[in-house]
Amino acid sequence: MNIFRFAGDMMHLLSVVVLLLKIHKMKSCAGISLKTQELYALVFICRYLDIFTGFISLYNTIMKIVFLASAFSILWYMRSHKVVRQTYDKDQDTFRHYFLILACMVLALLVHHKFTFREVMWTFSIYLEAVAILPQLVMLQRTRNIDNLTGNYVFFLGTYRGLYMLNWVYRYLTEVHYHHRWLTWISGFIQTALYADFFYYYVKSWRNNEKLQLPA
């Protein structure tokens, strides 16, 4: 494992920790899209179908369990916790995420490397992850006062896939028998590019020491 991959994983982990911190300590999920969280839970379920059968490393297995467990605890907090669920801005979270699921499933059935259940579900998870942030980005744009934790959450999440792309380039250059797939590269690029606008305003607000606000 190279430094880019590890740093990417740590950013991903950090984003989840920041979100759970906000929810658990502040007892608030204001500004967080439940739809994006539902999509991530679905992404992890479909990607990690091999969690108990395809052992790669202890690190991988533990991280998979952490991502699955954190995704479901976030969903539980947002939907069932008596205090947290009342801070959820349902009216601002209007993205029709079922269309994303449907579109990604159709695409995975049409464009994949191998037509097996495991492989199509894995491909579906790659496509869905690329666009899962969209409901959250739409919600951010509608939120007038984005708190620091929410801004950092999205920033870490965007940085994670960006670092993964550097990891792919590094592996391509250094591994002799390298079999990475173009499907992952394109999806990963789209996923990272979706954050470009957000990154611009995030860095700008940070440099000017202002509160983060996205233009409507």
Binding site: R5, N60, W122, R171, H177
Partner: peptide, 10 residues
């Protein structure tokens, strides 16, 4: 080539 590098990633 069944051992794909993207399968050992998260």
């Amino acid at each position: 080539s069944h051992d794909h590098a993207d399968k050992d990633e998260l």
